[in-house]
Structures are given as structure tokens and as C-alpha cells.
Amino acid sequence: METTGRAHDSARGPHRRTVAPSHQQEEPMPQIALDAADHALIAEVRRDGRVTYEALSLVLGMSRPAARARLRRLLDAGVVRVVGVAHPSVFGRTAYAHVTVDVAGPVLPVAEQVCAMDDAVYVSVVAGHFPLVAEVRSADQEALAAAVRRIAALPGVRDIRTAVYTAIVQHSHFPPGPSKVAALDAVDLALVENLQRDGRTPFAELAAAVSLSTSAARTRVLRLLDSGAVHIGARVRPDALGATRLSGFQLTLDGNHAADALKTIGDLTEVEYLAHTIGRCDAIGTAASHSAEGELTFLETLRAVPGIRSVESWTHLRLMKEDYAPPKSD
């Protein structure tokens, strides 16, 4: 999944970005100054979205009320949102692909048609060789192929190129790797849904929402977290951290050094997402930079990594959709 990583905190509920008509622009978010304590707090909440105020106070070297007030300030300003991210397999989505789309004529009408597809979980208008990129998540390879064909058949689409994900190397919001939960029952799914809205919902409120005791709800949530079925962390508004430019990139790798190259790239601080792929390229990634110069510096660093044969990049202009929730049932 190419993702805004992202703090590009888009959402219908904490995990969904509502598609806005192409003529509308989003309201600018209020700006607040962040100090070293704020950055330390954000790093801790990114790691564990349900970290206790007591633990935060120890990390920050301040009182529990002061740590609580710090986090509340960031939440109220929209700098940070703490949300649960469910592993795609929880909702039966096991096949993923990245699609670049060439368009004859204006791109926004085509982008809005792609946004309307349940399987299209991420859609962005970009500046690059192709003006539109999308991530598709489907139940299986057959459904994935059908979704890609639907995009190719849309009015205005001239050409598409597909890269199928084989492994997630780096993800800023979710630990890579499969979920260890074989199946979730209705209560588990209800807990996941509540955590997607607010990852710090108290266990007592979660229990009341699913008609369990507080201890039973706590046990279930901890099992979901330990198994990798859901991860709770902070999504941070990128401009608050000075990262105002988001770029995507695809790589062709030297097969003899591909693993080392991907490890090196995944460790770069700018990289928010990195996936191994087959198809039009060997890897897909997303990086956040503070400026055009920062983006250029990152791409130059990328091109210098041993094992990379070629780099193609694009700059995100407008994120149209970011929605990893399950498709709505009829």
C-alpha cells in the first residue's frame, strides 16, 4: 500500500478520508509550535497509542497531569489522532496492488470514479509520468484482477500499469507482517470498529459498547494487539512536523542486492512506506520531505543506494481518498 503514512490524516471516522468534490479545497489546519517534549510525546504515542499517562510522564520527565495536558493539546489541535489500524486480512483482504493511471483529459473526474470503488482504498492525484495513483485491496487475486480491469475500463482512462505487493518492508503506522488471528468473531470486529474511531477509548467504554465486562473487553483488546490484528498508534499531521511534501517512488532493483537495498531504504528517515512488488517494478514507496530541496536530497540519496538500478518518482498533489475500513455490506 502506498500510503500517506500519514499523518495525512484523512478520515471518515479516524480511518476514512471522505472524498471531497474536486472544486472544494480543505480548510487549513491551525498551526501550533512543537517543542522537544511534544516531539518525544509524539514518538511514544506513535509506538503505542494506548500508552498510559504515567508512562508518558516518565518519558517526558513531567507530572502525570502535565503529560495528559500535553497530549490533549495535540489531539484538540488536530496535530495527532490516535486510531486503531486493522490488518487487512481481518476484513478478508489478502491481495494488494499499486496502480498508476494515465488519463485522456482532466484527471479529477476519473479520480472520483476510482474513489467510488470499494477496493480502491487509496487514491491520489500526482505530478509525474501518470497523473493518478491508486492502491487496490481485494479478497484474492481474482478479485484484485477484476478491480484493476474496472479501473482500466473507466471513461477517460488511457492506460494503466500495475505492481502487485508481495511483502511490506516498512510502514509508518503498522508493523509489517501477517496477523496471527485466524478469525475474528462479531465482538472482536465491534471492538476493532470502536478502536478505529478512537484508539484511546477506555476499556470500560469499549466493554459497554460490546456488552462485555471491562476485564473481558481488556483481554480481547490485548489479544487483538498482541496478535497483530490491530495496531493502535498516532497519526500525525505532516505539516506539524515540517514535512509538507509527499512523494512516491518505484524502483528497479539488482536481484543480487535487492534485500540489502530494501533494508537500507526502509531505514531512511523520510520513508513512510515501502513494499516489495512484482509487475511494473520491484518496489513501491512513499517519502515525506520538508521542501522541494528536501525531496531532491532524498531522491539523490535513494539513487545512490547500492542495488538500485532505476528510480521513478512522483509528487502527490491532492489526496482524494484514504479508507482502509471494510467495504460496506449491502
Rank of each mutant, 00 (worst) to 15 (best):
R303S: 14
T286R: 05
H173N: 05
G294N: 08
S179M: 04
H8W: 07
H8C: 00
R81Q: 13
A134E: 01
D185I: 12
A288G: 04
G233Y: 10
A259P: 07
H39N: 12
E26N: 12
A146S: 11
G307V: 02
A127T: 14
I32R: 01
D254P: 00
A40D: 15
R137Y: 00
H98L: 04
D198M: 03
V181K: 09
P28V: 12
T52L: 10
D330N: 01
T269G: 12
H276M: 11
K263L: 14
A134T: 15
R237T: 09
E26K: 07
T219M: 09
H8M: 01
R200L: 06
L251V: 10
T277K: 02
T301G: 11
I151S: 09
R161N: 10
W314K: 01
L56F: 11
T244H: 06
L246F: 14
A240I: 02
V305H: 10
V19P: 12
L224M: 10
H276F: 01
C281V: 05
Y324L: 15
Q25M: 03
R200W: 12
C115W: 12
A36E: 15
G228A: 04
E300T: 15
G266N: 02
A234P: 08
P21Y: 04
G49F: 04
K328G: 13
K328L: 14
T18P: 05
S310M: 01
A190P: 03
A33K: 13
E27I: 05
G5C: 08
I232T: 02
